[in-house]
């Protein structure tokens, strides 16, 4: 038996130790309340107020005794942010799925900002547990590695492998393996590093688009200028396009399009995370998201238009999720935004 820690409070979202006076969890970015997290509701009154009609009549089964509405689960809609909205994230159950199987985490390790998004594989058992374990383990490992002085690319790779082990550990057997996708982004001074397994994506959305490039110039693909996608899906569609077997449109239209070819889980082959590093010399936003968002906004220009020009990063994230919900919300929707500004370290 290990000793039981009772003196320290835990983050209600990820369970990491948090300390008095902290507004947000260092590990996952969950906003911490002024008071310690409420204990689970004990038997008997007072009942929780209904999210729909406001009556304090929610029973132990989670239904309102007045209007009957099933109360949203905590994961149905999550919003997290780092202090000062240095980075934000929103995750939503969407309109079709009975629960949210996506998860997200934010962390900061000055001067780096970290965002992780994972999407549980629907055909696996407990995909919600897989995505949460991976996102929390990945973000925590990234923070620890960066704090230890690793360069972002090495930290990104190590964190993805750490997350893979965390997910694999959930499986009682390879035949019963929770699994999920994984994508991380680290915004550092003058540099953005992404790593992924599966079909969750990172986009770069420039604050202002550069003038059209002269076709004679050779493109520096490692420099972030105009808005674009920074990851390539581990998916059947991407594989077909890469092989030249199908056009992008043909591949996307195929029923197999979204079958992923790599994932985290005890049933996965050896995990080989993709890692890419980009230089950045202008303001913009790193968008880390699950397919519940990019299905509706597949290209960076559409993403940029849907975000609009809101007052705060959190408003931008809400606008993106709102767009996917409006468009049908057929999947869980998750997005984290890492704003790159002149003040958080972009090279002038």
């Amino acid at each position: 038996m290990s000793t039981v820690q009772t003196a320290e409070a835990a983050c209600p979202a990820c369970g990491e130790v948090v300390y008095p006076g902290e507004d947000f969890c260092e590990a996952c970015g969950h906003r911490l309340g002024d008071s310690p997290p409420a204990p689970p509701p004990a038997a008997g009154p007072p009942a929780r107020a209904c999210a729909h009609c406001g009556e304090p009549a929610v029973d132990d089964e989670g239904y309102c005794g007045h209007c009957g509405l099933k109360q949203p689960a905590e994961r149905d809609h999550l919003e997290i942010e780092l202090p000062g909205q240095a980075a934000v994230g929103v995750s939503d159950r969407g309109r079709r799925y009975p629960r949210n199987e996506d998860y997200l985490a934010l962390a900061a390790c000055s001067p780096h900002l970290i965002g992780v998004v994972c999407d549980g594989v629907g055909s696996s058992p407990h995909p919600d547990a897989a995505s949460r374990a991976a996102a929390e383990a990945g973000a925590a490992a990234l923070r620890d590695r960066l704090a230890a002085g690793d360069d972002p690319a090495a930290a990104t790779r190590a964190a993805a492998l750490h997350a893979a082990r965390a997910v694999a550990a959930l499986a009682p057997s390879p035949a019963d393996a929770p699994s999920c996708t994984y994508v991380s982004a680290v915004a550092s001074p003058g540099q953005v590093t992404v790593g992924w397994v599966g079909d969750s994506r990172v986009y770069w959305v420039a604050a202002s688009e550069p003038p059209p490039r002269d076709p004679e110039d050779t493109e520096d693909t490692s420099a972030l200028t105009g808005s674009r996608q920074l990851t390539d899906d581990d998916s059947w569609a991407a594989l077909m396009v890469a092989r030249g077997a199908l056009s992008e449109a043909e591949a996307e239209a195929h029923p197999n399009a979204h079958v992923i070819t790599a994932w985290l889980g005890a049933d996965a082959d050896e995990v080989e995370p993709h890692v890419r590093t980009f230089s950045v010399d202008r303001p913009g936003t790193v968008v880390v998201c699950s397919d519940g968002l990019w299905n509706y906004l597949p290209d960076a220009a559409a993403l940029r238009a849907a975000a609009g020009s809101p007052a705060t990063p959190l408003d931008a994230a809400r606008a993106l999720v709102g767009h996917a919900l409006e468009a049908g919300g057929r999947d869980n929707i998750t997005v984290t935004l890492l704003p790159v500004t002149a003040t958080n370290g972009v090279r002038p």
């Binding site: 089964e61 239904y63 209007c67 009957g68 509405l69 099933k70 309109r95 009975p98 919300g329």
Partner: peptide, 15 residues
Amino acid sequence: EVPSAGVGKELRAAW
């Protein structure tokens, strides 16, 4: 007969 709560919502229509 219950009023529609909207797509994505679940109701206990009867207990």
